[in-house]
Every structure is written in structure tokens, then in C-alpha cells.
Design a protein around this nucleic acid. Structure first.
Length: 493
DNA sequence: AAAAAAC
């Protein structure tokens, strides 16, 4: 079995790897690093959690080891789709570049320019950025990309989803064609294929075996939710969630609760707080410093419930999450896999509970098609219908507000505080903990022709055409293990 | 049925 020490990495990098406690590279690291060290372009088809980040960070540091940065001319560039992912790459870089003298700057939005400018002026070896902020710096004339020797595009298909491809293309054109390029995508839709054909030169194609199902260590359950009345749906659903949380008891140490919409993230977070649950929201409309602080608190165990949009669905390294709840069924089945992949990591047990209303049926079907097996239905605790006592007609306006957030002005999620107090009064006898009913259908053979969920001819290739689980069963090398440095606070520096 | 990202 290959060890890191067998790879021709810089001894300083090897030392940092050893110190971090790693010995064995993951498959993508093992395959990509030798090509990378030979100077070849690398096209990596891999998901987060496969050890992807180190597969480019380690050779990049090795390659940059000699030589030094000049003012405003970074020697390498890493592009990531979200601020949090960029920050994570920066953390990775710090740990593996520990014994080198390489410098870096994290260029993400939502943060003041001053500090970023200072670093660029001084000269950095590695720039880690989200596309928008990088171009912003460039347009302000603060940055020259003609010195870029290594460029990395991470999560390209997600960039596509987010409309970043024109930016990426532009950035490519600003860098010298002699650069070495590392390009990662979980899937290869045509637009991404075109990009790689244009900007990569004879790349080594490195593909990590895709995983069909969600990690075996994740217990999944589907809770069917049927509101007693349409105008009560929202508050009843929140109540159902609280019941489910309660039913988990001690087993639940912390959880990420996903909603499909930002407004609903805010509303749910407020509601849970009102019920004395330790909850805080995270989504893209919140101030970046708050996002960072909230995530840090959650990672440090100071926050029990993270209420999140899909900004937190992918790539985020959060150690030891015992539970994931889908307050809303994700519209795209691959998001389901990403969301529940936040739990059951590094071989730990995890549970993922999804609340599905009747109208969610088609999304549930799509998820089951993608997984290739049905989601176990959970026996729900305290039936909402049995408890007509809640929502007294005294507070009709309040609940309607919460139920129809879309009609409201956004940004001011104040509706939530209008949430009915009555709910809190009666702690329903929550009995019968969720007992997952075994799936009816026989488990399908994993790798046989999988019925693809998506209606094939899509106007635009979007999302993962073949998004699979990003958590594999067994973990090798830097796979899923979350090193300590990820627990530290990060900031743009 | 959404989210994300630049000011």
C-alpha cells in the first residue's frame, strides 16, 4: 500500500502530513499526486470528502517550495464556489505548508478589502478565492495573474450551477497558458467538458469510484407529515420537528437542520430558539462574520442546532454531527445525499431524518431513485392530528404569517416572532420513538444500471448528473477525518 | 419549490 512517504513530496510537506497523523493517501491522492508532481494537468472527478483538497494542496506546496512571491503577483490560485469552502482550503494550506515559508491570502466576499489588499501588495504564493472577489481585486488593478504557475478550480460543476463559469473562463484567460491546472468536478456535464477541453492540456484524468448510496453509517428515516389544515402547516411542521428532536433524546448531540429557503431558515431558527433550543441560522443572506462565527460555534460544540440553507450542504467539514434533519425535502435529489453526508462521518454513526409533506412525494421518489432503494418510513411520534389543542384561534394572523413567508418582505424574518405561543405550553406526550420500518423492496445491487432520477433532457446541464455519495464507507488517509485545525477559527488573512 | 456569489 502506498504511503505518503512513497510520494515524491517535499520533505517539509511530508513532515506536516506525518504530524497531522496521516500515513496513507486516499485513492484520489494516490492517483493524482504523482501526475501533479510531474507537472501534468489533472482532471479530478471526485466529490468532497474523498481527500480532494489535499490532492492538489500537497503537490502545489511541493511545487511552489522553491521560488518566492512578488508583489501583486501570486504564484498560484485556488478557486472555490463558496466562501466557507475557500476558507477550508485555506486552513488545509496552513497545515500542510506549516514548515515552508509560503504565504497565502484568502480572498472572499463579505470581508473588508483592506487586509486582503495588504497581503496582495506584500506578495503571496497562494491565493485562495471565490471568483467574484478575485475579479473585484483584479478590476481594481490590485492584482496581476500573469505569474500564476498553478491554478486550481474546485467543485467546477457547482460553479456551473452558480453561474460562475463565465468568471472562471475569464480568470483562466488572465493566467499564463503555461500554468499547471488542477480541475475538479463531481460530474462532467457538457459545459464543464467544454471548459476542460479548452483550458487543460493533456490532463491526467483521475476518477474516484463513485458511491451509489449514502454512507452505510447513516441511519435514514422518512417522516410523513400531513398538516391538519393548510394554514397550520408551517407551525405543525415545526412542532413535528421538535417532537422528532425530542424523540431522539440523548442520542442527539448536535444537528444540522436544512430548509430549502433562506426565509424558512430564519423562521425555523427563531422558532426553535423560542422553544429554548440552542439554535442559530446560517445562509447566504447573513453577514459573513456572523456566518463564520456561527459555524465556529457549531464546530466547537457551543451550538447544538445549526439551521441551514444548502450553503452548508456541501463540502463543509463539521466533525461529529449526530443528526441531520431535512425540514424540507431537497428539490434536487443529489442535495439530499450532500446534506445527509454531514453526519455519519469518519465512521461515526449518524442519523438523517427527512420530513416529507404529501406534496413532496415526487422529490422523495427522485431521492429514492438516486439511492436505488426506498427510504425507511419512520413511525411518527405524537400525531399532529391528535393534538388539536395547539394553535388556538387566538393567534391566526401570526401563524398565517409564518405559513406564507413568500408573500412577506424578505430580509426581515420578523414573522417568526409572531409565532404562536400556545405550542410551547403543552408538552405533548411524545411516545413511540421513531422506529424505522425496514424497506419493503429488496435492496438493489449497487453498481448495476442505476435508474437515473432526473428527467434526462434538461434545458441546461445542471447539478450533478451523476452525483453520488461523497462519503464512502471506509475511510483512508485524509478522507473523512477532520483534523484539529478545522476546529480553529478562520478568518480572511 | 432554492441557493450561492462582488460592490
Amino acid at each position: 500500500m502506498t504511503k505518503f512517504s512513497d510520494l515524491k513530496l517535499d520533505p517539509k510537506v511530508l513532515k506536516a502530513i506525518a504530524e497531522a497523523g496521516y500515513e496513507t493517501p486516499t485513492p484520489i491522492q494516490e492517483q493524482a499526486i504523482p501526475h501533479a508532481l510531474e507537472g501534468r494537468d489533472v482532471l479530478g472527478i471526485a466529490q468532497t470528502g474523498t481527500g480532494k483538497t489535499a490532492s492538489f494542496t500537497l503537490p502545489m506546496i511541493t511545487r511552489l517550495g522553491r521560488g518566492r512571491a512578488r508583489a501583486r503577483m501570486p504564484r498560484s490560485l485556488v478557486l472555490a464556489p463558496t466562501r466557507e469552502l475557500a476558507a477550508q482550503v485555506a486552513e488545509n494550506f496552513d497545515i500542510y505548508a506549516k514548515y515552508t515559508r509560503l504565504t497565502k491570502a484568502l480572498l472572499i466576499g463579505g470581508v473588508a478589502f483592506g487586509e486582503q489588499d495588504k497581503l496582495i501588495d506584500r506578495g503571496v504564493d497562494v491565493l485562495i478565492a471565490t471568483p467574484g472577489r478575485l475579479l473585484d481585486h483584479f478590476e481594481r488593478g490590485k492584482l496581476l495573474l500573469t505569474g500564476v504557475e498553478v491554478m486550481v478550480v474546485d467543485e467546477a460543476d457547482r460553479m456551473l450551477d452558480m453561474g460562475f463559469i463565465p468568471d472562471i473562463e475569464r480568470i483562466f484567460k488572465l493566467t499564463p497558458f503555461t500554468r499547471q491546472t488542477f480541475f475538479y468536478s463531481a460530474t462532467m456535464p457538457p459545459e464543464i467538458e467544454r471548459l476542460t477541453n479548452t483550458f487543460l492540456q493533456g490532463p491526467a484524468r483521475v476518477e474516484v469510484a463513485r458511491q451509489a448510496t449514502a454512507s452505510e453509517t447513516i441511519e435514514q428515516a422518512l417522516v410523513e407529515f400531513r398538516p391538519s389544515r393548510r394554514d397550520r402547516a408551517a407551525s405543525e411542521k415545526r412542532r413535528r420537528l421538535r417532537d422528532l428532536i425530542e424523540a431522539e433524546g440523548e442520542r442527539l448531540t448536535n444537528a444540522i437542520i436544512f430548509c430549502n429557503r433562506k426565509v424558512d431558515v430564519d423562521i425555523l431558527a427563531k422558532s426553535l430558539k423560542k422553544y429554548k433550543l440552542d439554535a442559530a441560522p446560517i445562509h447566504g443572506d447573513l453577514d459573513q462574520s456572523l456566518r463564520t462565527r456561527t459555524l465556529d460555534r457549531f464546530r466547537n460544540g457551543e451550538l447544538k442546532f445549526l439551521i441551514a440553507s444548502d450553503v452548508a450542504a456541501r463540502g463543509l467539514d463539521v466533525p461529529a454531527v449526530s443528526h441531520v434533519f431535512n425540514f424540507d425535502v431537497p428539490i434536487h435529489p443529489e442535495d439530499y445525499v450532500h446534506r445527509i453526508g454531514r453526519t455519519g462521518r469518519a465512521g461515526r454513526d449518524g442519523k438523517a431524518v427527512t420530513i416529507a409533506a404529501p406534496a413532496d412525494a415526487k422529490f422523495v421518489t427522485a431521492i429514492e431513485d438516486l439511492l436505488g432503494k426506498p427510504l425507511p418510513r419512520a413511525e411518527s411520534p405524537a400525531q399532529t392530528a391528535d393534538a388539536p389543542a395547539e394553535d388556538t384561534p387566538t393567534a391566526p394572523a401570526a401563524d398565517t404569517a409564518a405559513a406564507e413567508p413568500k408573500r412577506r418582505r424578505r430580509g426581515k424574518p420578523a414573522e417568526a416572532k409572531a409565532q404562536p405561543a400556545p405550542e410551547s405550553v403543552q408538552p405533548e406526550p411524545v411516545k413511540a420513538e421513531a422506529a424505522p420500518v425496514p424497506a419493503v423492496a429488496a435492496p438493489e445491487p449497487e453498481q448495476t444500471a442505476r435508474p437515473r432520477a432526473e428527467p434526462k433532457p434538461r434545458a441546461q446541464p445542471r447539478r450533478g448528473e451523476d452525483k453520488r455519495d461523497d462519503r464512502r464507507g471506509q475511510v483512508v488517509g485524509m478522507g473523512d477525518h477532520v483534523p484539529d485545525f478545522l476546529l480553529r477559527e478562520f478568518r480572511a488573512s
